[in-house]
């Protein structure tokens, strides 16, 4: 059973019709090939049209789509010899942030990112991708490991935000995020970050202060969730749609603002309609980004990264 978003209802209806026809064909002798291909053409056009002009709020929904490929899907297809590593050596192993050693297109590297989980059980296990301090401390640990062994770092960002809990606060959520950002900024090796779904606030930047910041076409990245922003500024969570527009959280706006370096095109109808193609495109984009960075010495890399962030926001969106 496919999951359809609200705005995909016309697409869902057409696909339902095709299903019905196929069912008829299975039982009877009616030749429906022509009819099905006509309908399929219609579906394809509708999908293309719909996804060509998604509103910011629709992008938020696509970015959060349950069938969108997650961290583990990327690792399965892009990383060979993957060796997951666990724990922050302090308190616990946070399943909202996963990572380890592996090979990306032959090159040994450290890969880490948020995992939201693909089904209900997994989502609970991974706490919906909302990390506690241990997650950010695990990230710091893996970044230090990369630094020590001169390995590039690949991060995949997909989180609603850091987990707001009592224990998380007591164990220093703020400090853990701050140190994780610092860890990214001080990395002596190339660090390429890709927002693959939801880039939620401090929890996202904790893994995204990299040399190259890529974003999937329909992913979002924001200082606060549209719902949170709406309930504070409009005093009504119903205004989330309006807030999504005001926040400029789409990949397209963020590129104009100079916050991200590159948009990775998604397959027609979004990454969830063709995960393999989406993952392959992200792989190619990471490869290109790493290629441009590997020649740089640690000092040059660090100062280039500092300059990149310092110059952000100095030119406003026109």
């Amino acid at each position: 059973m496919r999951n359809f978003l609200d705005f995909e209802q016309p697409i869902a209806d057409l696909e339902g019709k095709i299903e019905e026809l196929r069912h008829l064909a299975d039982t009877g002798e009616v030749n429906i090939a022509d009819e099905v291909s006509k309908l399929q053409g219609k579906v394809d056009r509708l999908v293309t049209q719909t996804y060509a002009k998604l509103t910011p709020w629709q992008k938020v929904q696509v970015a959060r789509h349950a069938d969108r490929p997650h961290f583990s899907d990327y690792v399965d297809r892009l990383i060979t010899d993957y060796q997951p590593l666990a724990g922050d050596r302090n308190f616990a192993d946070d399943h909202a942030v996963l990572g380890g050693l592996g090979r990306f297109r032959g090159q040994a590297c450290v890969v880490l990112g948020h995992e939201k989980g693909g089904d209900t059980q997994a989502r609970i296990k991974h706490n919906f991708g909302m990390a506690r301090p241990e997650g950010y401390r695990k990230a710091q640990r893996l970044m230090s490991l990369a630094a020590r062994f001169n390995l590039p770092v690949i991060t995949l960002v997909d989180t609603p935000g850091a987990y707001p809990g009592v224990g998380a606060e007591e164990r220093g959520q703020s400090e853990a995020i701050a140190r994780s950002i610092e860890g990214c900024l001080q990395s002596p090796t190339p660090l390429v970050s890709t927002v693959i779904g939801e880039g939620g606030s401090g929890g996202a930047i904790a893994l995204a202060a990299g040399d190259a910041i890529l974003m999937l076409e329909h992913s979002v990245y924001s200082v606060i969730s549209p719902e949170g922003c709406a309930s504070i500024l409009w005093r009504s969570a119903e205004q989330a749609q309006t807030a999504a527009e005001a926040l400029r959280l789409t990949a397209q706006d963020l590129q104009k603002l100079g916050v991200i370096d590159r948009i990775v095109t998604e397959p027609v109808g979004g990454a969830h309609r063709n995960p393999e193609a989406a993952i392959a495109s992200v792989g190619d984009a990471i490869d290109t980004a790493l290629d441009e960075l590997t020649a740089l010495e640690p000092a040059a890399l660090k100062s280039r990264r500092r300059e990149k962030f310092l110059s952000m926001g100095r030119d406003a969106l026109t």
Binding site: V223, A246, L247, R248, L249, L257, L310
Partner: peptide, 22 residues
């Protein structure tokens, strides 16, 4: 905390301010 009205650019003040103190 961050100033919501400046969106992602306010979030980017987190790395920027960290660079400053570095």
């Amino acid at each position: 905390g961050a100033r919501m009205q400046e969106g992602i650019l306010s979030l980017m003040q987190m790395p920027r301010s960290i660079i400053a103190v570095q």
